[in-house]
Amino acid sequence: MSEMTFNLRVWRQANSESSGRLVDYTAERISEHMSFLEMLDIVNDKIILEGDDPIAYDFDCREGICGSCGIVINGVPHGPNPGTTSCQLFMRHFKADETITIEPWRAKSFPLIKDLVVDRSSFDRIIATGGYISCNTGAAPEANNTPIPKDIADEAFDAAACIGCGACVAACKNASAVLFVGAKLQHLALMPQGQAERDRRALRMVDQMEAEGFGACSNEGECEAVCPKEISTKHIARLNRDYMRAAVKQALRP
C-alpha cells in the first residue's frame, strides 16, 4: 500500500460574520484507498493534537446517498469524478504531492455556518411549499392497478434520485437552483398521483426559489455535470414548461 502526501488549501472561516481565508495544511500518510473525507479526518486528528480548531465539514452516511457532504474540490463541486459525492471520492483519483483547494458551496442562499459547512435550509423551505402530495390516497393500493409505462417510471425515478446536496447551485455561475427544483417537481409530475397538485406545486416551488435569492438558469449544464446522481437538465426544460402552463392557466381562470 502506497502512502501519499497532499498539500491542502482549506477555506477557514469562524462564522458567517467573520472573514475567511485559505489556510495551508499538509495531509501526510494518506492511503490511496481513503475517501476524501477520511483524508480530512487524518488532517483534523493532527490539528486536534496540536490543540487547534479542526476543519468543520458536513457528512452523515458516507455512502453517497444522504446528501450531507458537499465541498468544492479544486474548483469543482464534489471533485473531479462524475456521479460522485465528496464522501465517495477516493484519494487514488489525485496525484501524490498535488495541491488540493477545498472550499465551501458559495451562494447567497446557502449562508456559511463555519469553514466548509453551509446552511442549506433554503432547499427545505422550497420543498415545504409543495414538494409533496397532500391529498388523501387511502391505504396502499395494489401496485399494478395504476399502469405506468416503464420509460416514464424510469424518468421519474431518475428525478427522484436527487439527494438535495446543493452541488447544482454550487456549480452554477448564477447559483441557480432550477435543477434541484426541476427534479423535485418532476419525480411527482411524471406520476399519475402527482397530477392533482401539479400546477400549484410548480407555481409555489418556483416562487419560493425566487424568494430565497437563487439565480436564473443560463442552460450551461454545469449542474448536470457535477450532480452526484447525474440528473438530466431535461427536468429544467420540463420545469419551465410546467411553470408557464400553470401560470397561464391561473391567469385565464375566470
Binding site: N74, E103, N174, A225, E230
Partner: peptide, 15 residues
Amino acid sequence: ARPQAYERNERAGYA
C-alpha cells in the same frame, strides 16, 4: 446570487 466568488473555479466537463 453569488456574492463571494470561488478562489478556484474550474469547468466540470462531462455533461
